[in-house]
Amino acid sequence: MSQRKKSRGHLTAASSPGASVLAAQPLHGVDERPPGADGGVWGRRRVLLLNSTYEPLAALPARRAVVMLLCGKADVVHADPGGPVIHSATRAIAVPSVIRLRSFVRVPYRARVPMTRAALMHRDRFRCAYCGSKADTVDHVVPRSRGGAHSWENCVAACAGCNHRKADRLLSELGWTLRATPLPPKGQHWRLLSSIKELDPAWVRYLGEGAA
């Protein structure tokens, strides 16, 4: 007898509170795990949700995305032929990479994008603000020990070498300059970038500057 459990009410995708625009609904007779898929990977799978105007809204758990498709709330924008497939008694549903709402949803205006390590790295394109090599750390331009703020304007991506050499000194003391002035990013898609480190390549065209 098969050890794989069947759900009579729900799909097994990890659901994060408040991540979806629309509430998930139970699906009857749907196999919780796609054949051959690892439960952990399935739980971490995310699908990009776009507004009807193609503006990025959120990265949904796969379960939410599939429910929205089956309920007619969204359409597939970018399929993923190599992605997981879930099965019900009557059909197979491939989990897409990007979906779009059929109806427009108004997003409340939010003035400032929260600064996270992921968003900062995307803003600086994963390049050191001092030498231009691959960045793997975050540095405070004016060190916090010398009154520097933990803010978009005072934080930059940096390589470990530059970060170590700079230590708690000012740029003027080292004769260094920044490759670009650090500024807070603007745009709804930056809120999404602030929570995601690794992006599905299919999302890049919808996320604009910072996602490439």
Rank of each mutant, 00 (worst) to 15 (best):
residue 62 A to F: 12
residue 206 Y to Q: 01
residue 203 W to T: 01
residue 4 R to Q: 15
residue 14 A to G: 15
residue 157 A to S: 15
residue 128 C to R: 09
residue 41 V to K: 06
residue 2 S to D: 14
residue 46 R to G: 02
residue 108 P to T: 12
residue 74 A to V: 12
residue 102 R to I: 14
residue 80 D to S: 05
residue 192 L to K: 00
residue 32 E to W: 10
residue 139 D to Y: 01
residue 175 G to W: 09
residue 170 L to E: 08
residue 97 S to L: 00
residue 165 R to M: 14
residue 38 D to K: 06
residue 206 Y to N: 01
residue 129 A to E: 12
residue 167 A to V: 14
residue 48 L to W: 00
residue 6 K to H: 10
residue 18 G to C: 07
residue 88 S to Y: 03
residue 194 S to E: 08
residue 68 M to Y: 09
residue 53 T to Y: 04
residue 77 V to N: 14
residue 146 R to D: 07
residue 110 R to Q: 13
residue 174 L to E: 03
residue 158 A to S: 15
residue 18 G to F: 02
residue 93 I to R: 05
residue 134 K to I: 09
residue 114 P to G: 13
residue 80 D to N: 14
residue 66 V to A: 12
residue 57 L to Q: 05
residue 62 A to H: 05
residue 23 A to R: 12
residue 184 P to D: 06
residue 149 A to M: 10
residue 105 V to Y: 07
residue 52 S to I: 07
residue 50 L to I: 09
residue 207 L to N: 00
residue 184 P to M: 10
residue 130 Y to I: 14
residue 137 T to I: 08
residue 152 W to G: 08
residue 26 P to T: 13
residue 21 V to N: 02
residue 56 P to G: 07
residue 69 L to C: 08
residue 111 A to Y: 10
residue 89 A to D: 12
residue 183 L to K: 15
residue 163 N to P: 08
residue 42 W to A: 15
residue 87 H to I: 09
residue 143 P to H: 05
residue 163 N to T: 11
residue 12 T to K: 04
residue 135 A to E: 03
residue 54 Y to K: 09
residue 191 R to N: 09
residue 125 R to E: 04
residue 190 W to P: 04
residue 132 G to A: 06
residue 167 A to E: 15
residue 164 H to N: 09
residue 17 P to I: 06
residue 168 D to F: 08
residue 9 G to S: 11
residue 125 R to M: 04
residue 15 S to M: 01
residue 101 L to E: 01
residue 51 N to R: 05
residue 91 R to K: 11
residue 98 V to F: 00
residue 78 H to N: 07
residue 165 R to Y: 11
residue 153 E to S: 15
residue 140 H to F: 01
residue 170 L to V: 06
residue 76 V to H: 01
residue 93 I to Q: 08
residue 193 L to H: 00
residue 170 L to H: 07
residue 106 R to A: 14
residue 78 H to K: 11
residue 74 A to Q: 12
residue 85 V to K: 11
residue 20 S to M: 07
residue 118 A to G: 02
residue 40 G to S: 07
residue 168 D to A: 14
residue 36 G to R: 06
residue 54 Y to D: 09
residue 29 G to I: 09
residue 134 K to M: 05
residue 96 P to D: 03
residue 35 P to F: 13
residue 189 H to A: 04
residue 54 Y to S: 12
residue 93 I to P: 01
